[in-house]
Amino acid sequence: MDTSIVGVGVGITDRFRTVVEEKSARIENIAPRAEKLDVKVTHRAYHNGRMEDSTVELTLTGKGLPVVRAEAVDGDKFTSLDLAVDKLCEQIRRAKEKRVDARNHPRKAHFAKGTGELAGIDVQPASVDTLEAVATGAVPVIADDEEAEYTPVVIRTKSFEAEWMSVEDAVDRMELVGHDFFLFIDARTDHPSVVYRRKGWDYGVIALATLAQPAAALVS
């Protein structure tokens, strides 16, 4: 498995490269079909250098495999690496267990025409309050009596190609990238949708009424 390491605001030492190679062997052991591991280390300093942290982002790719991502933040980049590798391995392990469970207990999601309920998968439609909050852009405000120390907000923007898939596949992809939500186009309805984590092992799904169009149709 090839390994690529990139540092942003920090140099990559030979010692760090050696540790990454050792960790990549562990990842390759549980994901033998993986072909490349991208490691991005970002160092940030706040308040004139009085606060520092290192973020390690891991991206695992392979032919015929979904992308697996994990991220961790700590004051020490070696600790961040350990945490990120643990997350990545746990996501791969959980994905394997779900595939085994799917083979032993086949599931097929379907909607009840009369009630509109989603059955066959542990996904629940979003509540009315959630839908209204998304539609209106309402954000809860938390008051604090004590004046909080100023912390700069880092906003990261990412763009991805739209993918058509089932709700069940979207849940699996969300687990692999380690996020609390996953954006996709519902292949059943062609509606832009998002699945998200609820309490326990439950998931929720929010769909927009607007139909999505393939990229080829938009260009033409």
Rank of each mutant, 00 (worst) to 15 (best):
R156I: 06
C89S: 14
V123C: 04
K113P: 07
E163A: 09
D2E: 10
A45W: 01
D86N: 09
F78C: 08
D144F: 13
F160E: 13
A209L: 07
V141E: 15
E149Q: 14
I27F: 01
D144M: 14
D76F: 07
E57N: 09
V141H: 11
D144Y: 13
D76I: 08
S54I: 04
V128G: 12
G116H: 03
L176E: 09
D169A: 07
P214V: 04
S54Q: 00
V41A: 04
A135V: 07
A138K: 15
K113I: 09
N29H: 14
T42D: 05
V8C: 10
F78R: 11
L58P: 03
H43D: 00
A70M: 01
D74A: 11
H191W: 07
R50A: 08
Q213W: 06
A217K: 13
L37K: 07
L183Q: 12
A126Y: 04
T151K: 14
E52I: 05
P140R: 14
T18R: 12
R188N: 13
I206Q: 02
D169W: 01
K77H: 11
E71G: 01
S24G: 11
I12Y: 05
N104S: 15
L81N: 08
A112V: 09
D145C: 15
A119M: 12
A95M: 08
M165I: 03
V134W: 10
S54F: 04
V56W: 00
V128P: 09
Y196S: 01
V171D: 01
Y196V: 02
K113R: 07
E22F: 05
L81Q: 06
C89V: 15
V219Y: 11
T61Q: 01
E22L: 08
F16N: 05
T210P: 02
G9I: 04
Y46S: 03
V134I: 15
F184V: 03
L131H: 11
V8I: 12
E168S: 06
D169P: 02
T18G: 12
D122E: 15
V39Y: 01
V139W: 04
A112Q: 05
L83T: 05
V73E: 14
R94N: 14
R50H: 03
G62K: 00
N29K: 15
K40N: 00
V56Q: 00
E57H: 03
R26D: 11
I121P: 04
D186C: 12
A170C: 04
I121C: 11
G114A: 08
S80W: 03
L118P: 02
I206T: 03
P106W: 03
G120R: 01
V205K: 01
E175I: 14
K199E: 15
L65T: 00
Y203I: 01
A112P: 00
E71I: 06
R188Y: 10
P106K: 00
V6W: 08
S220I: 00
V195Q: 02
E35P: 02
R103V: 15
K40H: 04
V85I: 06
D180S: 14
K108Q: 07
Q91W: 10
V219K: 11
M51Y: 10
D186A: 12
A95Y: 13
A148R: 11
A215W: 06
T136L: 05
I121L: 13
G178M: 06
